[in-house]
């Protein structure tokens, strides 16, 4: 089974639209994982039917028992996150500040602090309207576990792909260059970088590619809104060539992506548009690159 991850550095370049189109074109040949858990949007175009749901527990928060607390303040002294504040004669924990490090219960002389495990989100296994299995998730508000949730989503998606002997796993990755991105990219077979010829798009592409390069994973590039700025588009092509990034396709700056999203469809389903045909070419290129 081959794992393909789609990332972009910059948001709004068409990453999810591309991932959904590849899912549509691959259908039963691909399991799909929505790893943009911060802003998971894949379900909006795949209209999935939910098959399984599971709570995802990760991390802890401290809880002070107001009855047992003597107000000695030792917990406040050791907390490096300013998460403990006075509450009358005793202390309480600010849940949004607490990092769940477990230091305070270890030093509380009267054992009035307990650690409670936290529900960080939910993970779903669904079937898209095209027939693919889709593993997706929602992240609990304020959770700092997005990287771990990405790892869990990928683990389940990989298991589903193996169980059903599906040849491809398509991963919609996260924006940025931080922890969730690393968790999306690590261990994949091919990275698709979606970019646009804007100064921001170019800058973010170069930063995120630096992360990809360190993993040593082969990469391809899709330039969306390619005719928005001819000069920067040329610079991006030159960058791709210099770095050995395969150019997989270019899409014009038009309304097809927006119209598809607002109709609840993938771009590849937008019949009689140039973009739909190009999506097909992108998928064929990826398949041929990954074929043994």
């Amino acid at each position: 089974m081959k794992q393909i991850v789609i990332i972009s550095g910059k948001g709004g370049t068409g990453k999810t639209s591309l991932a959904a189109s590849l899912a549509y074109l691959a259908r039963h040949e691909a399991v799909v994982a929505d790893c943009d858990v911060d802003a998971a949007d894949m379900h909006l175009v795949t209209a999935p039917q939910r098959l399984e749901k599971e709570d995802f527990f990760s991390g802890y928060e401290a809880v002070i028992d107001a009855e047992g607390c003597t107000g000695c303040g030792m917990c406040v002294e050791v907390c490096h996150f300013d998460a403990i504040v006075p509450d009358g004669d005793v202390y309480r924990v600010l849940p949004l500040e607490c990092e769940g490090c477990g230091y305070c219960p270890r030093i509380c002389p009267v054992e009035a602090i307990k650690m409670r495990s936290l529900k960080a989100g939910e993970i779903y296994v669904s079937r898209t309207r095209w027939g693919n299995l889709l593993v997706h998730a929602t992240l609990g508000i304020g959770s700092d576990m997005s990287g771990k949730l990405v790892t869990e989503v990928r683990k389940r998606a990989r298991r589903k792909a193996e169980e059903t002997r599906t040849p491809y796993l398509i991963i919609d990755g996260s924006p940025g260059i931080g922890c969730p991105v690393t968790a999306s990219v690590t261990g994949t077979d091919f990275v698709v970088l979606v970019t646009e010829p804007t100064r921001s798009g170019q800058h973010d592409l170069e930063r995120v590619y630096e992360v990809v390069r360190r993993f040593g994973i082969p990469a391809g590039c899709v330039i969306n809104k390619a005719d928005l700025h001819a000069g920067i588009a040329a610079e991006i092509r030159a960058f791709a060539e210099k770095e050995g990034i395969r150019l997989l396709g270019e899409f014009p700056y038009d309304d097809t992506f927006v119209e598809a999203v607002n109709a609840g469809m993938s771009v590849a389903e937008m019949e009689n548009t140039p973009a739909a045909g190009k999506m097909k070419e992108v998928w064929e290129k990826i398949r041929s690159i990954l074929s043994p």
Binding site: D38, A39, G142, S143, S146, P175, G176
Partner: peptide, 14 residues
């Protein structure tokens, strides 16, 4: 602020 709804965005919003 950073995009999204998790920790980095909240740190800025707070």
């Amino acid at each position: 602020a950073p995009p999204g709804t998790s920790c980095p965005m909240m740190e800025a919003a707070k």
